[in-house]
Amino acid sequence: MSETTTIRVLINQAPHDLSVGATLADAVQHAGIQPPFAAAVNLQFVPRTHYAKHSLNDNDHIELISPITGG
């Protein structure tokens, strides 16, 4: 029986494979998004100070949202 070494997550509705044990910080780096932005995992906001501690699971839905300026 082989052990799975990757998980599949959705980042802004696009599938991405990350290593087992990946954190939200890893997903942000993988996505290449630049600040400012907010992040949510499975519709729950995650503060920036928790990105490195927030472990991801297979099939998590990650939203990285940049602010829209204008009037």
Rank of each mutant, 00 (worst) to 15 (best):
Q29R: 14
P67F: 09
L43G: 00
V28G: 05
N42E: 01
Q44D: 09
V20F: 02
V9F: 00
L24P: 04
R48L: 07
Y51N: 01
D58R: 09
V41C: 07
N12F: 03
N12K: 01
H54M: 11
P35E: 12
H54G: 02
H30N: 11
N42K: 08
R48V: 09
S19H: 13
I33K: 08
I11G: 05
T4E: 15
Q34S: 13
L10W: 04
L64N: 00
A22W: 01
Q13D: 10
D60Q: 11
I68F: 12
H30E: 14
V20M: 10
A31P: 02
I11T: 02
S66M: 05
M1I: 02
A25W: 03
S2Y: 03
S2V: 04
V41D: 06
V9L: 05
A52R: 12
I33P: 00
N59I: 08
N42T: 01
M1S: 14
P47H: 11
S55E: 14
P67V: 06
D58T: 13
L10N: 01
D17S: 15
S55G: 10
P67K: 12
N42W: 04
P15R: 06
I11Q: 01
N12R: 03
Q29W: 00
G32D: 07
T5G: 10
L10C: 03
L10M: 11
S2D: 07
Q44M: 07
G21W: 00
V28A: 07
T6K: 13
P47V: 11
I62K: 07
R48T: 09
E3G: 10
A52I: 08
H54D: 05
P15W: 01
L18A: 13
T4L: 09
L10V: 01
I62T: 02
Q29I: 14
G71F: 10
A39K: 02
P35Q: 10
G71K: 08
P36Q: 10
M1T: 13
A27D: 05
A14T: 14
G32P: 13
L56M: 07
A52G: 03
A40P: 05
P67L: 04
V28F: 06
S19T: 11
V46Y: 06
H61W: 01
K53L: 13
L24W: 08
A40I: 02
P35D: 11
I33M: 08
Q44K: 15
H54K: 14
H30V: 03
L56G: 03
L24V: 02
L64M: 03
A52C: 04
V46P: 05
I65D: 00
A38H: 02
A22R: 04
F37G: 03
Q34K: 14
T69I: 04
S2A: 08
G71P: 00
I65M: 12
R8E: 15
I7S: 10
I33A: 09
R8W: 03
P36K: 07
H30C: 13
Q29G: 07
V20H: 05
N42L: 02
L24E: 05
A39H: 01
S2L: 03
N59L: 15
H30F: 07
I65P: 00
P15T: 11
A39R: 04
L56T: 06
A40E: 11
N42Q: 10
R8S: 15
Q29N: 13
A25M: 08
P35K: 09
V41M: 06
F37Q: 00
F45Q: 10
P47G: 04
F37I: 01
T6A: 05
P47W: 04
E63R: 13
I65A: 11
P67H: 14
T5H: 12
L64G: 00
T49Y: 09
